[in-house]
Write a protein that binds this DNA or RNA. Structure first.
Length: 335
DNA sequence: AAGGTCAATAGGTAAT
DNA sequence: ATTACCTATTGACCTT
């Protein structure tokens, strides 16, 4: 917002009105119903924390909040347009609220981050402030809280991202290791096949006729092929099972019996449970994470439901469905 | 003097 | 149209 926005078209009019016609005050029907002018108020507890906008005219106008000795006229109840040009009176002096006032406001904010109009007026009376000041304080306080919360959310998301990144890297490494293992085992099988063929060739059966001999050889070669195929297949399957980590590949190399497919594909309860685990993990990793809304679409305070507990920092899984809390709980340490 | 904090302002939006 | 709220911003004050 540049200074150009601060050229008050309406306020110039009002200022001129005040300066040139002391007895003509803006009435409430023109949208300036909250206008008032400073004057000492018996009920007001003077405080050096108050903003002092002593008006030169020293006039008073009644408002729903009563005469305000501190503040410049405003168009709207809480944050509306200013009714006066700054250049028309003394320079504004901002004063901070006293520690007691802030303390009380903070206490109230912990209970209710938004105030009912009646409560606002009551609190203002208690603290010797204008209701509008209380409203502005709550407004700014909500903004501060939201900023802080955004920072927290960002830190949490970043920690979650880093965690997932690490997990992903580990999986990639593990996958590469398993691929290497498959390659090594496949090469070993090829070597073994060659050795088998050489053995058959070097030991021809003595009492076998030529045609019978050829037939046998073809059959044996076929069996070898079948064995090779089964072994490789089972190896790949097993590499994805827990047996892989237990080093059971040696079974395939040491066992002289042909590969038994019924054994290889025998359903193993452990495999099932592992599959379920893997599938669950895959779902967790592949499905879109239940991320909180992006910053540009940050939910309104009402939507976020700023409860008292929330205000105390219990919002570890902000915006997440309850079901997702289990998943996110693995990052609990990140907070 | 620079940078941070905070009360206050300006303008926009949604609900009524 | 009014109202309450939000966001961005200003400007006074304070701390370093």
């Amino acid at each position: 917002m540049d200074d150009g926005c601060r050229i008050y078209g309406g306020s110039d009019h009002i200022t001129a009105l005040l300066q040139h016609n002391n007895n003509q005050l803006p009435c409430s029907s023109d949208g300036f119903e909250s206008l008032w002018f400073p004057s000492p108020s018996p009920s007001f507890q003077a405080s050096d924390t108050m903003v002092d906008f002593q008006n030169a005219q020293g006039r008073t106008i009644s408002t729903p909040d009563g005469p305000n000795p501190n503040l410049r006229p405003r168009k709207r109840e809480e944050t509306g347009d200013d009714g006066l040009d700054d250049s028309s009176h003394q320079p504004e002096k901002k004063r901070r609220l006293s520690a007691e006032q802030v303390q009380s406001l903070e206490r109230t904010f912990e209970v209710e981050n938004k105030l009912e109009p009646e409560r606002k007026v009551q609190l203002a009376k208690e603290l010797g402030l204008q209701a509008r000041q209380v409203g502005i304080w709550f407004q700014n306080r909500r903004a501060r809280y939201k900023t802080k919360q955004l920072e927290k959310d960002y830190d949490l998301l970043k920690a979650n991202y880093d965690c997932l990144q690490t997990h992903c890297d580990n999986l990639i490494k593990e996958n590469e290791g398993l691929k290497d293992e498959v390659t090594v085992l496949a090469n070993m099988l090829k070597l073994r096949e060659k050795q088998t063929v050489n053995t058959i060739r070097s030991e021809p059966p003595p009492a076998m006729e030529e045609s019978e001999d050829v037939g046998k050889r073809v059959t044996m070669a076929a069996m070898c092929k079948q064995e090779e195929a089964s072994s490789v297949k089972s190896d790949i399957v097993d590499s994805e099972s827990p047996h892989c980590a237990e080093g059971n590949h040696s079974f395939l190399l040491e066992n002289e019996e042909p590969a038994n497919s019924s054994h290889i594909f025998e359903p193993d309860p452990a495999d099932f449970s592992q599959d379920e685990e893997d599938q669950h993990l895959s779902r967790s990793l592949l499905s879109p994470l239940p991320l909180p809304p992006p910053p540009y679409g940050f939910p309104k305070l009402e939507e976020r439901s700023y409860s008292a507990a929330d205000l105390h920092g219990n919002s570890g899984c902000i915006g997440l469905p309850v079901d997702d809390h289990h998943f996110w709980s693995c990052f609990a340490g990140a907070d």
